[in-house]
Design a binder for these strands. Sequence first.
DNA 1: CAGTGTGAAACAGTTCACAGCT
DNA 2: AGCTGTGAACTGTTTCACACTG
Lengths: 242, 242
Amino acid sequence: MTSRQNRPRDRGIPEATVARLPVYLRALHGLQDRGVATVSSEELAAAAGVNSAKLRKDLSHLGSYGTRGVGYEVEYLVYQISRELGLTQDWVVAIIGVGNLGRALAGYGGFASRGFRVAGLLDADDSIVGQEISGMTVGHIDRLEDIIADHGVSIAVIATPAAAAQGVCDRVVAAGVTSVLNFAPVVLSVPESVDVRKVDLSIELQILAFHEQRKAGGPGDYEPVPGGEPPGAAHYVEAVEA
Amino acid sequence: MTSRQNRPRDRGIPEATVARLPVYLRALHGLQDRGVATVSSEELAAAAGVNSAKLRKDLSHLGSYGTRGVGYEVEYLVYQISRELGLTQDWVVAIIGVGNLGRALAGYGGFASRGFRVAGLLDADDSIVGQEISGMTVGHIDRLEDIIADHGVSIAVIATPAAAAQGVCDRVVAAGVTSVLNFAPVVLSVPESVDVRKVDLSIELQILAFHEQRKAGGPGDYEPVPGGEPPGAAHYVEAVEA
DNA sequence: CAGTGTGAAACAGTTCACAGCT
DNA sequence: AGCTGTGAACTGTTTCACACTG
């Protein structure tokens, strides 16, 4: 059931569209930096790596922000997409788990530039607590509930080892967090009201491996996988310079 | 009706199914570690965070590997999924860009345990080249083509700053790599024969923000966006650090 | 029986192609 | 003339529900 609301524009934006809006936004920022004022669906689509029909359909879910015969005004579209995504307000984030990955996240410029403010870096390891990372001091995980309450954290980023993730998740949810970005390779269980998105490095690699395997074997009738043959030796690719 | 008992003739496993197989595989490994020998679709689905109908349909694309009235033999299913994904062979990976993220990837245990062997860590920065990371010495990006050829790298992981990513991508593709996992926040262009998957941290956060925003403003509520909309004032920076 | 495997229905997302606006 | 916006056709995915089997 989608909660229908009475808004000027129909507010049921398809999930697939939502997932692409950030990509469009980035492409638009690129155009903005190059001083481009107006862009056609064809051009923007190319910059975003989709086809133009899809782009137009996606944008049409936000409203009619283009001009027929002309295209879209870059600045205006940036604003509309930002607003739709909720990026015109700041979101407060806590990063839990300050290993290699947590560090990478803490230093990731893409957060701050999109209105995500990191309110705390937390870890359970005493040798990490107190360290200065990207201008922030790592706090002890004991302070999790305080940090969430004091700073109004609404999004938690979990970058702990797998074994710790569910426990941390339960705590952040109990403390009022309603969105979780999970980097730990586990399926988190949460109440229905909480959104979880997961990023799993090894899953992405496995999906690539599947397709890679398929390429290696030709269009024959037989099983593509021989059994123990190491890949790589016989690879060639058509030239790709540009 | 299927032509034979096992292994459907049907070459095409749906993409959505492929994307879930690694999740099932992980759940199965968990069961294996706990000594579970047999599992029903209901139980496995719960462990993987999907519903049982979807799981059964997914598995049915690989063949009839279950026993009616009983369930699936864990070990056998692990093997079948691994084989389908191409994990019964080793894949050689190179990681390009050894900033925070590259370091996290280099140390990520999930790679080695799934048959992904990291053949090289490469960076352009002389202060990073030569460093020892997770038991490997960081090589200079100049050696990219050598490493790819010598080790038979078929998957490249790009963890460079955005500005460097396309150039690196062109080089790995020219050197014979046919699968790329891209962490840089850019749309890479590659020949059709090359697979690219991208992981974008800030996009995931933006998707969460969208849903978060929707929760916050209840039905009939107005959004907390102020009227002032000076589109020129927004100053977004596209810099990503690595 | 209990639980898989699967047609068929329902739903979601993409692509087509063109009407209609500037 | 050119390009957006969108119904309609199409393709892919999920869910349902039950026949079938060990």
